[in-house]
Design a protein around this nucleic acid. Sequence first.
DNA 1: AGACGATGTTGACAGCGGTAACTTCTCGGT
DNA 2: ACCGAGAAGTTACCGCTGTCAACATCGTCT
Lengths: 211, 211
Amino acid sequence: MSTTPYHHGNLREALVGAGVDVVRSGGPEALSIRELARRVGVSHAAAYRHFADREALVDAVAERAMEALVARVRERLATVEDQDPVTRARRRLQRIGVGYVDFALAEPGLFRLLFTAYPEPPEGTDPDGEDPYSLLNVALDELVAVGYLDPADRIGADVTCWAAVHGFSVLSVEGPLRGMAEADREAALTALLLGIDRGLGRRGEWEELTR
Amino acid sequence: MSTTPYHHGNLREALVGAGVDVVRSGGPEALSIRELARRVGVSHAAAYRHFADREALVDAVAERAMEALVARVRERLATVEDQDPVTRARRRLQRIGVGYVDFALAEPGLFRLLFTAYPEPPEGTDPDGEDPYSLLNVALDELVAVGYLDPADRIGADVTCWAAVHGFSVLSVEGPLRGMAEADREAALTALLLGIDRGLGRRGEWEELTR
DNA sequence: AGACGATGTTGACAGCGGTAACTTCTCGGT
DNA sequence: ACCGAGAAGTTACCGCTGTCAACATCGTCT
């Protein structure tokens, strides 16, 4: 009876969990059905009872990665303590960016996986409404509400912010900015977020946001 | 004698050329040594006389892709005809961004390949000095020279611009912005480039850059 | 002429995604 | 309490890939 039972119990979860481990250490390209089956101690064909194909498995792991990303951003968001509404809103936007990049650098494998799952839109508006894009939009609406961001400039601001932060992450994780010294990267990110903040704010009534 | 000669002549070039074709139509994942060999009409192992492994082949194709990207950006750059030095410099920066994104959307396969070649830095400072990053730096220096960009803000400006434009491209080509309506994307890109321009310019002495 | 190095071929191996046919277990209805 | 249906796992196979080793062919230099 000490022999492993014929049925695993909850193979699906086990596979996804192993998938997260593999991607964390080896990146998306290390994610193979056979490798995961091996890790879980099951034949490779068993996985097909729970996933239509490799892509479905990748998607499932990507979902986990997305949850981790959102968690990281929320975490950073929670550290904002400013009282002044304007400063607070601006800082919140900044924190979203910091959290996003943080995650990308801390978990390059998971981050790359998120945008490697080519066929299906990795983010978009999740039905459960838990994606970084939503958080970003909330933050931008807040900036409009407190009067920092001109409503006319609100259009396209989401894409601009997302593109800048995502681009920075991609270039840092798998692009030419990889291998940049930590301090330099920190400075570059600060400059980038400052640039966004500056580009969004109304002219005149502007004051540098402290680090 | 009409039989194909035993030696191909210049197999390396032929393989890379076929590689470009394959990637253009099928993306980086369609790039396989055997497929290229088949297209060129040569045995699958012949490629190993010219490339150490698949990665080397991918790199060679990526180099071509990079040349095409630079060509596209230069092309766009050449269309700037403004006389006023400041406007001219600002517009040149804008054109670089437009060209970059244009290429990404026109050649998604080649663009993705550029940043799929994980192990080796795809861009970086090429010895022959022909990469988009150099063009960007020249444009930014120009902005400083004409007095539009504060020298203090020059630091990190390169990364900020690159990140924003690259991020926009990535999100449009393989990310959540894929499938966005053409007009919407156009508007979003305009807003993004405007945001960059605005974020860089000195306060006060500022005036909207016409489309 | 003849040897040699570069180039191309054939054949093999392992690992991958995916499918089919078969086995084992679980569970719900009588 | 049974027992049959279907869920879950297994083995065996296919074709594809990258990669290597052994062999064949060609131009070229002496």
